[in-house]
Lab assay of single mutants.
Amino acid sequence: VTVHVDGVEYDFDNPEEALKFAKKVAEDKNGTYEVHGNQIRVT
Rank of each mutant, 00 (worst) to 15 (best):
G7M: 05
V3M: 02
A26W: 03
I40D: 02
V25W: 10
G37K: 05
E9C: 12
G37C: 08
Y10S: 03
A22W: 02
N38L: 06
A22M: 02
G7H: 05
A22N: 00
T43Y: 15
K29S: 13
D11L: 15
Y10F: 11
H4C: 13
N30L: 07
E16S: 09
G37M: 05
D6N: 13
N38T: 09
Q39G: 05
V1M: 14
V3K: 00
F12D: 00
G31W: 10
K23L: 07
F21G: 00
V25Y: 07
T43S: 12
A22H: 01
R41K: 14
F21A: 01
Y10D: 01
I40Y: 04
K23N: 06
N38F: 06
Q39S: 12
Y10A: 02
G7L: 05
G37I: 04
A22Y: 02
A18P: 00
D11W: 15
V8Y: 11
V3D: 00
T2Q: 07
N14M: 06
K29N: 13
V3N: 00
V25H: 08
K23P: 01
V35M: 10
N30V: 05
K23Y: 06
R41V: 15
K24E: 11
E27I: 12
V1H: 09
N30I: 04
T32N: 09
T32R: 12
G7A: 05
R41G: 04
Q39P: 02
T2N: 04
V8G: 05
T2K: 10
N38G: 06
T43F: 15
Y10L: 04
E27D: 11
H4S: 10
N38M: 05
G31Y: 11
E17F: 04
V25I: 13
Y10K: 03
D11V: 15
D28L: 14
V3Q: 00
V42H: 02
H36I: 15
P15Q: 13
L19K: 05
Y33P: 02
L19N: 03
F21T: 01
I40K: 00
N38Y: 06
G7N: 08
H4R: 07
N30T: 05
T32M: 09
Y33K: 01
V1T: 10
N38H: 08
H4I: 15
T43H: 15
N30S: 08
V5A: 05
Y10V: 05
K24A: 12
F12T: 00
G7K: 04
V42L: 04
G37E: 08
V35P: 03
K29V: 14
D6M: 10
K24D: 08
V42F: 05
V3R: 00
G31I: 04
A18G: 10
I40V: 05
D13C: 11
E27L: 13
P15M: 15
Y33S: 02
K20G: 08
V3S: 00
A26K: 03
V8N: 09
D13P: 12
F12K: 00
D6W: 06
A26T: 06
K23I: 14
V3P: 01
E17W: 04
F12N: 00
D11Y: 15
Q39N: 11
H36T: 11
F12A: 00
T2F: 06
E27W: 12
V35A: 05
G31E: 03
N14S: 13
V35T: 05
V35E: 05
V3G: 00
F21V: 02
N14W: 06
D28Q: 14
A18L: 01
G31V: 06
K23W: 05
V35L: 07
H36L: 13
T43M: 13
H4M: 11
F21W: 10
K23S: 08
Y33F: 12
L19S: 03
T43L: 15
V1N: 05
L19Y: 08
V35I: 14
Q39A: 10
T43A: 07
K23R: 10
V42S: 01
L19M: 09
V25N: 06
Y10Q: 03
N38A: 06
E17Y: 05
K23A: 11
T43Q: 12
E9V: 15
E9A: 13
A22D: 01
D13N: 11
V3Y: 01
V25P: 00
L19F: 09
V8P: 01
E16C: 11
I40N: 01
N14I: 07
K24Y: 08
D6L: 06
I40H: 01
D13W: 09
H36W: 11
N30Q: 10
D13R: 09
L19R: 05
D28Y: 11
V42Q: 01
I40S: 00
F12S: 00
N30K: 11
D28I: 12
Y33H: 03
T32H: 12
H4A: 07
G37T: 04
E34C: 13
V3C: 03
G37N: 05
G37A: 06
Q39C: 13
V8K: 13
G37V: 04
E16P: 04
N30Y: 07
A18W: 01
T32I: 10
T2A: 05
G31P: 02
G37F: 05
D28K: 10
E16Q: 11
E34S: 11
A18K: 00
V5G: 01
V1I: 13
D11R: 15
N30G: 14
V8C: 09
T32P: 02
E17L: 08
V42W: 02
E27N: 12
P15E: 14
R41D: 08
D28S: 13
N14L: 08
N38K: 05
E16N: 08
E16L: 10
V5F: 09
G37L: 06
Y10M: 04
D6K: 04
F21S: 01
E16Y: 10
V35N: 04
F21D: 01
A26G: 03
N14Q: 07
V8S: 07
G7Y: 04
T43D: 11
Q39R: 07
L19A: 04
T32F: 12
D11A: 14
Y33D: 01
E16T: 09
E27Y: 13
I40W: 03
H4T: 11
P15R: 14
N14D: 15
G7P: 02
E9W: 11
Q39L: 11
G31A: 09
H36D: 14
L19Q: 04
V42C: 04
A26D: 02
G37Y: 05
G7D: 08
E17M: 07
V5K: 02
D6Y: 07
K20C: 08
V35G: 03
H36K: 12
D28M: 14
Y33A: 04
E34G: 04
E16M: 10
D11I: 14
T32V: 10
K29M: 15
V35D: 03
K23C: 06
K20L: 13
T32L: 07
A22I: 02
I40E: 01
G31R: 06
D6F: 08
N30E: 07
V1D: 03
E17S: 08
K20W: 10
E17G: 04
E17D: 13
V42D: 02
V1K: 04
I40C: 01
T32Y: 13
H4D: 06
E9L: 12
V3H: 00
D13G: 08
H4W: 14
Y33M: 08
Y33G: 01
E9Y: 11
T43P: 04
E27M: 14
Y33R: 01
L19T: 05
H4N: 09
Y33W: 11
H36P: 00
K20H: 11
N38P: 03
N38D: 09
A22Q: 01
E34L: 08
E9S: 14
V42A: 01
T32K: 11
G31M: 12
H36M: 13
V1P: 05
D6H: 07
K20F: 10
I40P: 00
N14F: 07
E34T: 13
H36G: 05
G31D: 03
E27K: 14
A18N: 00
R41S: 13
R41E: 10
A22F: 01
V8L: 12
Q39Y: 13
F12W: 03
F21M: 03
Y10N: 03
R41Y: 15
V25L: 11
H4E: 09
N30F: 08
D11E: 14
Y10G: 00
D13F: 08
A26E: 02
E16K: 07
V42N: 02
V3F: 02
G7E: 06
N38C: 07
H36E: 13
F12G: 00
I40F: 04
G31F: 05
E16D: 12
K24I: 08
A26L: 06
D28W: 12
D6G: 08
V8W: 09
E27A: 14
V25R: 07
D28C: 12
V5H: 05
F12M: 02
V3E: 00
E9N: 10
K24T: 09
P15Y: 15
V42R: 00
P15F: 15
K24G: 07
N14R: 07
K29P: 03
F12V: 01
K29Q: 11
K20S: 13
G31N: 03
V35F: 09
K29F: 15
N30W: 06
A22L: 02
E16R: 07
V25M: 14
V8I: 13
G7S: 05
P15G: 09
N30A: 08
N38V: 04
A18Q: 01
